[in-house]
Amino acid sequence: MFAITPNILSNFMNSLSRYVILLSLILICVSIFLIIFLENDYYQGISFKIMFIHVPTAWLSLAIFLIMGISSIVGLIFKSPTAFTVARSLSPIGLIMSIVVLVTGSIWGNLTWGAYWVWDARLTSMLILAFIYLGHILLLYSFEHFQKADFAASVLAIIGMVNLPIVKFSVDWWTTLHQESSVLRIGGPSMTNDYLITLLVSFFGIFMLTIFWFSNIFYIIVEKRKIERSKLLND
């Protein structure tokens, strides 16, 4: 585990990134094709199709935070630079994902509920998640030395992990305007198979795009540090 330096991980991901982006583009094209030709919902009509962006990005924004939190724990305990760099390169992706969730959600909400925004438990906790992502990025860039920044941001990521079960189970614990989970729930998915397959294809497409994006940000950070180090050595 300690043998994986940021450099090795960066090179490994770079060697795979062209296949990842190809797979992602294929999956996204297939999912767009599927979404266009899918039959509308009996009750919500065409407006439910925004779910195929809303739900995958919502899953990813939670999953990215979980990985960020775990790598922060690993980084703090084992003082591993790779884990810190993983956490550092994930937070901008998570912020964009959570903004996409909030925007698509409020469009969907206006079409179905009749309101862009309400202060129920699910929406509020999701907004807090977006703010924690923003705080993580701000902490990362508000220190002169990146080791200090990594330490402060990791503590925020670990504390912020408390919010994850609140986002996920808010619809079960309290009464909310937001509907309950449709896929990851007790008793199996509450949608027909054609919807479920479309949702999964769209999820994997966005997931592969996230991996590609992550490997690029990771590569940039590693290369920047190399340049800084060589500058320090030359001075």
Partner: peptide, 17 residues
Amino acid sequence: EIVLAKHDENYMPQSAI
């Protein structure tokens, strides 16, 4: 003063119904 529609977590096409 305000009325909001609350839809549930079930999605299906008319043909399935």
